[in-house]
Every structure is written in structure tokens, then in C-alpha cells.
């Protein structure tokens, strides 16, 4: 590879990707910033620079704060659950248990279903009294409950659906990590007389740490990215109890058509995502297994 002279080839090779990425990632990110500082043009009146006006209304907008809070609860609730369950699934499927390939299939199956189909299915499960969940709980003497219509359970219901959909996907990464583990570790531990729980705590779990960090970042990003189930199951309700940030952006932009305010809201999302990117590339990447 000639390093000294200028080469045209790499630039030509990179041209299509660069144009597309700039047009649909970098340019819109910058334009979001710009538009969040302007008032929308109306009729013949051009867009007017209003500085932080949208951000001030955002601070005074209780729905924005509710959506931010719900997003945090959603992430804090789904991510650790999905991580714990996916780790457990991987350990089960990687063990000598009978029927493990059938189990692996059932764990992974929700991953390849469209979230919109999954949400429609779960809409039925959550139906008060007639739905599967109330039918099941009534066996144990529970009263019927309007899971999606009660502000206390609406967000939680969305979280359960998301965990069911995603845990099997993350299981794959743990499965890959477990299969790369050196089997002599387990043999050595057996010779030492270590118990299985002890072995998991002191050997398996620490060795899975890079995978856990990788899964964690991806699960957090997904928690901000996916709103298909919100659209189907609760539409953010009741009374914004299950409105998460991206869903609020969607409503403001494409239901109320206030794209300037939606841009200001998007900026908050971009800052959160950039923060996550910083954590991943800046701090975690040194310990993460890829590269």
C-alpha cells in the first residue's frame, strides 16, 4: 500500500456512504439544532429566530417532564430485567438440560416477530377480565384489572411486553460468550470443590461482564428507540402515564405538526444518546470485547 502519494480510490469508495450518512444523519442532526431555535414560518411570514423560547416552554411543559420520567423508569425497569433474564436463558440453553434446542427456539422466537404484531397480541392478553392475563390470575383469586387503562400499570404493561420481545435477542450474545469460555475453568473449580452458585458468582459472571456492558448499552438505546408497542397498546395514556420521550416527539411532530417544538424535544433525545455514545466509546470500549 503506497502511503506517500495521494490516493483517489478510498475517497471514491467512500463517496456513496458519506453522502447518504451525511444527508440522513449528520445534516438532520444539525438542522434539528437550528430549527429548535426558530419559530415555524406561517403563511408568508418567514421563520423567526426565537433563541431559547422552545426550550423555555419545554421546561414549563409537564408532559415533557412526564415523558422524560417515564423514559427513565422504562429504561431502568426493562434493561436490568432483560439482562438478568437473557443471562439466565443463555445459561439454561447452554447446559445439558433435555430439550434445550426447543427452549432456545422459544426464547428467541419473539425476536423475529414484528413489534407491531407482538403488541397486537399482547393487547388481547391485557384485555380486562376476558384477556389471558386476567383469566390466569383469576385462577388464584385475583380481581380483574384494566392493565392498560390504569395509570399505575400502563407503563409497566409496556415494559413486560418489551422484555418478552427482547430478552431472547440478548440471550444470543451471552450464549456466544458462554461458548467461548474455557471448559477447563469449570473442571478446575470442580476439583477445588466449588459449588455451582459460587462458580457462577466468581467465574461466569465476571467473565460475562464485557457482554453485559455491550448488552446494557444496546438495551438502553432500544428503550429510547422503540415505540411501536406504545402506539398500539396505550397511545401514551391514560393521561400521559405511558408517554415516553420518542412517543411524545412523534405526537408533537406528526399529530400536532409543531415541528419546531418537536426539534427542541429531539435535541434532548440527541443529548441523551450522545451521552450514551460517550460512555460507550470513551469509557467502556477499553473493556469491551469487540475491536
Amino acid at each position: 500500500m503506497a502511503r506517500s502519494r495521494f490516493q483517489l480510490a478510498p475517497w471514491i469508495l467512500l463517496l456513496p456512504a458519506t453522502v447518504l450518512l451525511v444527508a440522513f444523519t449528520h445534516y438532520p442532526a444539525v438542522m434539528t439544532m437550528v430549527k429548535s431555535l426558530y419559530r415555524l414560518p406561517k403563511g408568508s411570514r418567514p421563520a423567526k429566530f426565537v433563541g431559547t423560547e422552545h426550550y423555555v416552554s419545554m421546561i414549563n411543559d409537564p408532559v415533557f417532564w412526564a415523558s422524560l420520567k417515564n423514559s427513565m423508569i422504562y429504561a431502568l425497569g426493562t434493561v436490568p430485567m432483560a439482562i438478568g433474564l437473557s443471562m439466565l436463558m443463555a445459561i439454561i440453553v447452554n447446559s445439558a438440560i433435555k430439550g434445550r434446542s426447543l427452549m432456545r427456539m422459544f426464547f428467541f422466537l419473539p425476536t423475529i416477530l414484528p413489534m407491531i404484531a407482538v403488541a397486537n397480541i399482547w393487547l388481547f392478553f391485557y384485555t380486562p377480565s376476558y384477556g389471558l392475563i386476567d383469566q390466569f390470575l383469576s385462577l388464584f383469586g385475583f380481581e380483574q384489572h384494566n392493565w392498560l387503562g390504569d395509570p399505575d400499570t400502563a407503563l409497566g404493561s409496556l415494559m413486560v411486553t418489551a422484555i418478552w420481545k427482547e430478552a431472547g435477542f440478548f440471550m444470543i450474545f451471552y450464549l456466544a460468550a458462554l461458548q467461548q469460555m474455557n471448559p477447563t475453568l469449570a473442571e478446575a473449580a470442580a476439583l477445588e470443590g466449588a459449588g455451582r452458585w459460587y462458580f457462577f458468582r466468581r467465574v461466569t459472571f465476571p467473565l460475562l461482564m464485557p457482554t453485559t456492558l455491550f448488552v446494557m448499552i444496546n438495551a438502553i438505546i432500544n428503550s429510547f428507540r422503540l415505540i411501536d408497542h406504545v402506539i398500539v397498546l396505550t397511545r401514551g395514556g391514560p393521561d400521559n402515564a405511558s408517554t415516553i420521550l420518542l412517543y411524545y416527539i412523534y405526537m408533537v411532530a406528526f399529530r400536532y405538526w409543531d415541528t419546531a417544538y418537536a426539534s427542541a424535544l429531539t435535541m434532548v433525545l440527541l443529548v441523551i444518546l450522545a451521552g450514551l455514545a460517550f460512555i460507550q466509546f470513551g469509557i467502556l470500549d477499553r473493556k469491551i470485547h469487540y475491536k
Binding site: 444523519t25 442532526a29 428507540r225 433525545l269
Partner: peptide, 13 residues
Amino acid sequence: VQLMIMPEALMVE
């Protein structure tokens, strides 16, 4: 950058 700031976040623009 596109890995983090995915197209869904930029749907308005």
C-alpha cells in the same frame, strides 16, 4: 455516529 443516533431519532428532520 449513526450507530447511536439512529434514523428513528431524526424522523422529524
